[in-house]
Amino acid sequence: MVENLSLGHLIYLLIVISVVKAGDDDWHGGWFPYAPDVGTDPNPVFTIRKNMYDPKHGVVMGVKDPHCDDAKTNLEIDWDYNPVNHSCFIFNRRQFFESRSDIHPVHSQDYIPKSYSAPHKCMSESINYNVIVPTFGTHRPLWAKYGEYKFLPRQRWVHNLEHGAVVMLYHPCADKNEVNFLRKLVKKCLYRHVITPYNLLSAQRPLALVTWGHRLEMSKVAPKIVVDFIRKHALKGPEHTARDGQYDLMLEEHSEVVSDLKDQELCKGLL
């Protein structure tokens, strides 16, 4: 049977036998297909170093590393700094969306298994989503500081969702009065919020609130629906940390504490 094995298989067997006999700590030879202390990323361009490896997410979160993610390097992989993402231009012309009371808010939910752990990807790899407004998914190891941004890529704010944040999205062409109304409600409800324009929203419902697994899309702000949504779905991410993020490119206003840093009382005094 051994004589039918390829040279590669024989090398693999010799390595396994050596490890079984000597143990990981005593082994000084090569590893197939990669050493156990560098993670499981076979990408030859980037190898996860031992101090950056996390068995749950692939890459440890919240650690600045210029070879992976330091919130400064290779940021154009998520956003090319195109002003169209935060400016009102539809087919190269301005077109403002009128709010309509006859278009009712829509609440949608994504099923996320309790065992799901969202992967972290370094800035050497792109991240794409198969839905317009993701409520979960692969994201960057460093999350965004809480507050309002001129523009924040979704690869960042999806990580904030995982920590229980509420993300407010608005199309740059949305009715400014409605945007301001929603903004005030969100800021009064909790510290752990992110606000950013998002030009992928529809003209029919150019406003949205997003939490882990849930999204609420609107044309016109309904205060009670907004407050109920936040009270019911905020802080429900799988990771319970109120620690602020590290990414702050185009942060215009940092969040202010509402009840406390842990947001133990959501939307205090509202409705």
Results as ranks from 00 to 15, higher is better:
residue 140 R to W: 12
residue 30 G to K: 06
residue 68 C to Q: 05
residue 248 D to S: 13
residue 152 L to M: 10
residue 39 G to E: 06
residue 17 I to C: 09
residue 30 G to R: 13
residue 7 L to V: 14
residue 187 K to L: 04
residue 6 S to A: 13
residue 139 H to G: 09
residue 135 T to P: 03
residue 94 R to A: 13
residue 262 K to L: 03
residue 126 S to D: 11
residue 91 F to C: 06
residue 105 P to G: 04
residue 13 L to S: 07
residue 139 H to T: 14
residue 55 P to H: 09
residue 22 A to E: 09
residue 46 F to W: 08
residue 37 D to A: 07
residue 13 L to N: 11
residue 126 S to M: 04
residue 47 T to Q: 10
residue 22 A to Q: 13
residue 138 T to Q: 11
residue 203 A to C: 12
residue 42 P to N: 03
residue 176 K to C: 05
residue 146 Y to D: 02
residue 75 L to N: 14
residue 181 F to E: 05
residue 24 D to E: 11
residue 74 N to Q: 08
residue 239 E to G: 00
residue 81 Y to G: 02
residue 76 E to A: 12
residue 16 V to A: 12
residue 92 N to Q: 12
residue 92 N to Y: 04
residue 91 F to K: 15
residue 260 D to N: 15
residue 103 I to W: 04
residue 67 H to E: 12
residue 237 G to Y: 10
residue 50 K to T: 11
residue 221 V to T: 09
residue 21 K to N: 11
residue 9 H to E: 15
residue 112 I to K: 07
residue 23 G to N: 04
residue 211 T to Q: 01
residue 70 D to E: 02
residue 31 W to Q: 07
residue 65 D to Q: 01
residue 205 R to D: 05
residue 211 T to I: 02
residue 52 M to I: 03
residue 208 A to F: 09
residue 250 M to K: 05
residue 158 V to F: 12
residue 79 W to L: 06
residue 177 N to I: 06
residue 202 S to R: 14
residue 55 P to K: 12
residue 138 T to C: 11
residue 140 R to Q: 03
residue 255 S to I: 01
residue 48 I to G: 00
residue 135 T to N: 13
residue 220 K to Q: 15
residue 9 H to F: 11
residue 18 S to W: 04
residue 112 I to M: 11
residue 107 H to D: 06
residue 198 Y to D: 04
residue 176 K to Q: 14
residue 2 V to S: 06
residue 183 R to W: 12
residue 239 E to V: 15
residue 125 E to K: 15
residue 43 N to P: 01
residue 36 P to H: 10
residue 63 V to E: 09
residue 171 H to S: 08
residue 184 K to V: 04
residue 46 F to Y: 13
residue 159 H to C: 06
residue 124 S to H: 15
residue 127 I to H: 10
residue 163 H to D: 00
residue 68 C to L: 09
residue 114 K to R: 14
residue 104 H to I: 13
residue 142 L to G: 00
residue 28 H to C: 09
residue 246 Q to E: 14
residue 6 S to W: 08
residue 7 L to Y: 08
residue 46 F to C: 10
residue 257 V to K: 13
residue 232 K to S: 11
residue 192 R to H: 08
residue 23 G to M: 07
residue 255 S to G: 02
residue 193 H to T: 01
residue 251 L to T: 03
residue 244 D to Q: 07
residue 166 V to A: 02
residue 65 D to N: 11
residue 198 Y to I: 00
residue 23 G to P: 05
residue 24 D to M: 04
residue 20 V to E: 11
residue 202 S to A: 10
residue 105 P to F: 07
residue 153 P to Y: 07
residue 170 Y to K: 00
residue 139 H to V: 08
